[in-house]
Amino acid sequence: MENMQEEILEYLEKIIEEEKQLARRGEIPDYIEAVDNNDHGAVTVSLTSTNGTTVRAGDYEGRFSLQSIAKLFPLAIALMDHGSEEVFKYTGKAPTGNVYHSLIQMEMQEKEKPLNPLVNSGAIVMCGLMKGKDAEEKIERILSLARKMTGNPDLSYNEEVYKAEDQDLNRALFYYNRHNGFIEGEFEDTLPVYWKMTAIEVTIEELSNMAAVIANHGICVHSGEELMPSDVVTTLKAFMITCGMYDQSGSFALEVGIPAKSGVSGSIVAAIPGKLGIGVMGPDLNKYSNSIAGIRMLKKISDKWKLSIFSKDESKKDESK
């Protein structure tokens, strides 16, 4: 086992060095660069297996905000609160060909609800759907789940990033959804939940711990506690593979084949069911708002160990032979 970990670490360090050469070729959103990540060369990766073993490489000491990765939390909690039949009265299940903060995708639909829970409009609806008497109680529920998934009991959000998240477009999405009956109440009960959760800060190891819970069907790989029912995790993975990488999701599924969710901080969380959770980070983004280095590292890792969920599982022998 020790030799295997050394081999994995050696390979991760190799691809880190390769990707550092390309890490400065994209862009960082202005508000992220101003208050969060401003080191274009900070490339890092962490792997946590379902038996709890972690291997990490690169600049892994820093913290960064989850951004859109955090959209997985209100979706999971809303599903646990209400069940899937009720949840999908308020959001669709379809990928989108538009940018993640688009209004036009709802205007073009007959029922005008968000296309899926991983675009901004859908995630805001999920924040409104969660049970809780106010925004503070809801964000505490999200933080509680995030702390258990990452293994950090002190996990919290970055106040500066939270304030930078307060943007007019998200307010417009809230009011559009409320106008169409998919959210109730005032924006103070919902939008601060959305802004604070996207500002939650993690290390790369905490990100791979979070991914490992999803890979382990909702069970924490360190404590053994069931944090989410397996059917909820199945829904998360389905949306990750179809919608998790914005409008690059189709090509990512084809080329990498791992359920994943990205954020504009440059982070990506990826989960190989029953095997492994992966966290990657590279701040510079491509035109789809996904990490350039992160996607390349995930492809290399997937190809190296044949991790695509669409590939034949070579570990299973034909028992008839």
Rank of each mutant, 00 (worst) to 15 (best):
K317W: 15
K148M: 12
L129H: 05
Y176F: 14
I124S: 01
K93I: 08
R56K: 14
G218Q: 05
A215H: 02
Y176K: 14
G58V: 05
T50N: 12
A94D: 12
V35I: 14
P259E: 03
A78I: 02
F310K: 09
E33Y: 10
Y176R: 14
L103A: 08
L72T: 15
V269Y: 00
D59N: 11
L191G: 01
P153V: 08
M106N: 04
G181E: 12
M106T: 04
L173Q: 07
G52H: 04
K131V: 07
E6R: 13
E85F: 01
E184Y: 12
L145H: 05
S208K: 06
H101I: 06
L285M: 12
G83K: 07
D189M: 12
V264N: 02
E86P: 01
E107H: 15
L173M: 10
A123I: 07
I77A: 01
K71G: 03
K163Y: 08
Y246D: 06
S251Y: 10
R24N: 13
N3L: 15
D318G: 10
P259S: 13
P114I: 07
T150H: 02
L66S: 09
V269T: 09
K89V: 04
A164W: 00
R24K: 15
E6K: 15
Y11E: 13
Y175G: 12
K20L: 14
F174V: 05
T242R: 05
P29C: 14
I142R: 01
A211D: 02
N286E: 11
Y175Q: 06
L9H: 13
K111A: 10
N98P: 01
K196C: 05
M240D: 01
A212D: 03
N3I: 11
K237C: 14
T190A: 05
F187M: 09
F64Q: 03
G218T: 06
H40L: 11
I200T: 09
L227N: 04
A199Q: 03
P95A: 10
L155K: 11
N170R: 09
V55S: 03
R147Y: 11
I309N: 05
Q109T: 08
V119C: 13
V87T: 05
A172D: 10
V213G: 00
E110S: 11
K138L: 13
D81I: 04
K163F: 14
V99S: 11
T48N: 03
A271P: 00
A70Q: 01
T198M: 13
L169N: 09
D284V: 02
A211P: 00
D59S: 12
P192I: 06
M197D: 05
G122S: 15
S102P: 10
G151D: 04
M245P: 01
E6D: 09
N177F: 04
K131F: 12
V55M: 08
A57G: 08
E10T: 11
G122K: 03
S84Y: 03
K111M: 09
D313Y: 07
S262P: 04
L236I: 14
Q67P: 10
D168C: 02
L129C: 15
E225R: 09
G218D: 03
E107L: 10
